[in-house]
Design a protein around this nucleic acid. Structure first.
Lengths: 208, 208
DNA sequence: AATATTTATTGAACGATGTTCACGTTTCCT
DNA sequence: AGGAAACGTGAACATCGTTCAATAAATATT
């Protein structure tokens, strides 16, 4: 029983790696089961013994991408002992850099939309939540009076705003903005957002 | 010459309207040429006499969506004489509301990615730029010392940040956030961003 | 060790989809 | 009215993801 399962696992790992490479090179739309089968050395039908369908395959690649993104964000906050404000700016820049360096894989995280009737598997939902903890910790230091729920909402808003700047900044659909300029804008707006949030907090706390 | 062209134009308009309805109901992935042909009463091949390919069709629908979005943003700033800060908050909320009310059509604006070798037609590029003018005017009032280029960059950053909040907020891929809460978050973060940017501006102007 | 049973692999086939094309049909200009 | 140009038609093509009966392999049983 071990021989077959072992080979199966090896093939599945190869399939996921091949899919990852293919998405990175040709984008999510360039992912074809027949090319994958040829690359890992099996018939196209065999792909469906390793994976339920391409949706699952994309989710598995996405899971790997999220893990690498998590590592990149961890690395960004590990060096030195910056203030919460600078930590958040670093995280935003690290997110921007990761997206730029892994453009197609990063895009695949958001382009892919699952069917409404097929819910996300548990392992896929889990690692999405983990990303917010990088933002949560500096925010908690900045806003000690806010509840965990409020902090979670603020973290999501902050992340979404940075994500939007990165997404449209790297789109280059209309105007190509150079990466250094984008990084500068992101860092500036993140600091502005934090300063504005802090000021609003102080005003509310002092006035009420 | 008028009879045929007139009919052609009517059919093309019907095609675009049918495509718009279909995207609104079933999403961008639910747009099928055969269904379109059946709906407007012609053979599937005839679609390609009205439009080069589905890419152009999607762009034409997108153009209409952008026009309606422009109207919505214009309406948002027309009532009363709010401060630039409140104008920007109103615009952001109007953008959020439009996205929520036209979810699939709004998503199609960003989901659709054209081939690298086929550049966007002029009429499609033009109306994308127009959107920023809504943000540009209040920004110019807030930051009189900034150059038009700087203002354009700030406008794009601000728009991108709001877009990100709306995009991830309406995604509901992980957690369903109620629309009123999202609106509150957006308005709050927009005001915080502006306050932060103003403070940064004052500090830089005073210190340098 | 030999056989039976379960499982995996194959590659052809299915259905859907965007797009093209040869063939009639309609429309337009003279 | 008649020829030319444009148009509409529906079948056909290529390309997908996915399925499936048949075959090969591996495992379990005696």
């Amino acid at each position: 029983m071990t021989k077959a399962l072992e080979r199966r696992e090896k093939l599945r790992a190869a399939l996921i790696r091949a899919a990852e490479r293919m998405i990175a090179e040709r984008g999510l739309a360039g992912l074809k089961t027949r090319d994958l089968a040829r690359e890992i050395g099996c018939a196209n039908g065999a792909v469906y013994n390793l994976v339920a369908d391409v949706d699952e395959l994309i989710l598995r690649v996405g899971s790997r991408t999220l893990l690498r993104l998590d590592d990149a964000l961890t690395l960004a906050t590990s060096a030195g002992e910056p203030s919460p404000r600078e930590s958040l700016a670093r995280i935003a820049l690290a997110y921007c850099d990761f997206a730029a360096e892994n453009l197609q894989l990063w895009r695949a995280l958001f382009e892919h939309r699952v069917q409404v009737d097929k819910p996300l598997p548990d392992w896929s939902v889990h690692d999405q939540m983990q990303l917010f903890r990088h933002i949560y910790q500096p925010l908690a230091a900045l806003f000690p009076e806010r509840s965990p729920e409020e902090l979670g909402i603020t973290a999501r808003s902050l992340f979404s705003a940075v994500h939007g700047m990165v997404a449209l900044g790297l789109e280059q659909k209309l105007v190509a903005v150079p990466l250094p300029a984008l990084r500068k804008e992101i860092a500036g707006l993140v600091r502005a957002m934090i300063d504005g949030l802090v000021a609003c907090d102080v005003k509310r706390s002092g006035g009420g």
